[in-house]
Design a protein around this nucleic acid. Sequence first.
DNA 1: CCTACAACTGGGACCGCTTCCAGTCCACGA
DNA 2: TCGTGGACTGGAAGCGGTCCCAGTTGTAGG
Lengths: 337, 337
Amino acid sequence: MAAQSPGRKPTLDEVAERAGVSRSAASRAINQAPHVSRAAREAVERAIKELGYRPNRTARALATQQTGVVALAVSHDDPELFADPFFAQVIVGVSAMLEETDLHLLLCLASSGRGRSRLTNLLHTGGVDGLMLLATRKDDPVNRIAAQAGLPTVYGGRPLGFEPRWYVDCDNLGGARLATEHLIGLGRTRIVTIAGETGSGAADARHRGYREAMTMAGLTPYGMVEGDFTEAGGAAAMRTLLERHPGADGVFAASDNMAAGALRVLREAGRSVPGDVAVVGFDDLAAAGHTDPPLTTVHQPVQALGQEMARLLIDLIAGQERSSLILPTRLVRRDSA
Amino acid sequence: MAAQSPGRKPTLDEVAERAGVSRSAASRAINQAPHVSRAAREAVERAIKELGYRPNRTARALATQQTGVVALAVSHDDPELFADPFFAQVIVGVSAMLEETDLHLLLCLASSGRGRSRLTNLLHTGGVDGLMLLATRKDDPVNRIAAQAGLPTVYGGRPLGFEPRWYVDCDNLGGARLATEHLIGLGRTRIVTIAGETGSGAADARHRGYREAMTMAGLTPYGMVEGDFTEAGGAAAMRTLLERHPGADGVFAASDNMAAGALRVLREAGRSVPGDVAVVGFDDLAAAGHTDPPLTTVHQPVQALGQEMARLLIDLIAGQERSSLILPTRLVRRDSA
DNA sequence: CCTACAACTGGGACCGCTTCCAGTCCACGA
DNA sequence: TCGTGGACTGGAAGCGGTCCCAGTTGTAGG
């Protein structure tokens, strides 16, 4: 089909010339703009086909002042943390939504200082039309960077301490209450919790949810140890809890990974799950179905989170009025509670 | 510091004017090019600081014909598969390497037809300077798309059936041999394997490695069932194997996830690991340390894979001669074998 | 003192596309 | 018949840089 002739790619000028119209007319034809006669439009289309023409993205971006690219910045001190399937799920969601548009996705792992300065640079040099942020730590410098960029910015999750203008979050508070209430409904009263790291908005909300549920049921929070959202952290936390509160009969872990660690320690300690102690996690990762016993947990719609972030950003870029979103969580009952 | 004055961002013209030099001189000063007097250079630097000037990425791209962006395309029929931590690790590696340069990373999940056509479009409209591909399926249309783009392209892993001009791969063949030889060294002789899906280059190489090791040890491959690289697939495969070859005393699974599934089924079937049957996996995911028992597996340097892909691409874009790479794998001994 | 050469300098032509605007053409109603 | 408005048209001015090149300056060697 396309005569990918000898050298360079064909330009709009060549298309126009071949079609026997002006460059303006060709441009209009290509962009489905009005004021193009049927004849002209067809001539242009033919020329495009014959030449194998594709408009140059960069030139268009310069002229329209729109890059057609949005960035997703992930901020973490530890780049390894990106391996958490959470991020992959968000990305899948974002991509799915973006696929409906002409926008492409730029991924910035802004952990190191260097990564952050690259992000700053990207934002200030007009490299992107909008920004999505996965950085829920309290005083993350990325927050300031984003604010100064003057670009439409959507947060995934809310950093502890300030509420972004636009965000999409999962209902961590409600989910944690659901989990704790489930344990309470099972007749457990000595329920401990393995919290996430302080400074994370999600960890904070989940911990609050736990406490609220306990209090509302007339129980006092029985014990809390902070983990770091990892399997090992959950295991360590469970060990500490077992030591401090040997009578515990229920555990709410603020993440599946930590719950898995807790399960392991519980097994090693000879406690049966859910017989002696019932365990509920949070996240509903794929792995939750494969723990021993399969983990009862709170499902959070991570992929939907990504989709909604992208949707929100797209709308903002288009200049529409939009407000933030909180996505519902729900309990998934398996065998551990 | 920077007077982010009233309206728009300052342009090179304004910098030049304020510094009292021509636009050309200002440009040279900014790009560290020669033929700029010390005085001029300093004046420009001062003007830049005062104005808070940042060169416009798009304009520069148009003039230099270099976008400063490279794409990483991940091709899969199932978008869920992206949740595999493998991809995240590769991305971490790629990002780390890219951080040393001015290049940014565009992520394309090219699973659907729509995603693929977006990729095609991106490549043909001059949106990126180079391409990395994670698509090891045999007749993936993305292979053709990449070839037609006429861009520096680096594969991560080799698709079965053709050897890309440039690739970085892990030594799957050698790793599988290592694993199998380890089982043989343990005195196992009735060793079965859970292979990955046919069509994947990695699956193929790992299966070949298993067979080669068996043959070289004078053993005959004892049994093979194909999984799909997932935990569930591994479990199903193990069930079949147990049925067909109840006497098996060793299992080489072509992925950790499948090994985890196998472990589960083995436990359910009352076989002790490694007592009755020894199990070796492949990948060395973080989860491999947390299975029961902890999994002996083949470590593949996934992050390094990403780094080397990026390094290779960077060099190719710079016009250097480079050749493909195969990264070594090594056995990690834990308790399952 | 003149010439040659090197280091600077700025004008202006790109890069490829969008878009404003003045102008042309045509059919229509008065 | 003429005026009028709408649909079309193409010229040209951007968008914000890079970079070639001819021209200017300063200096050292003859």
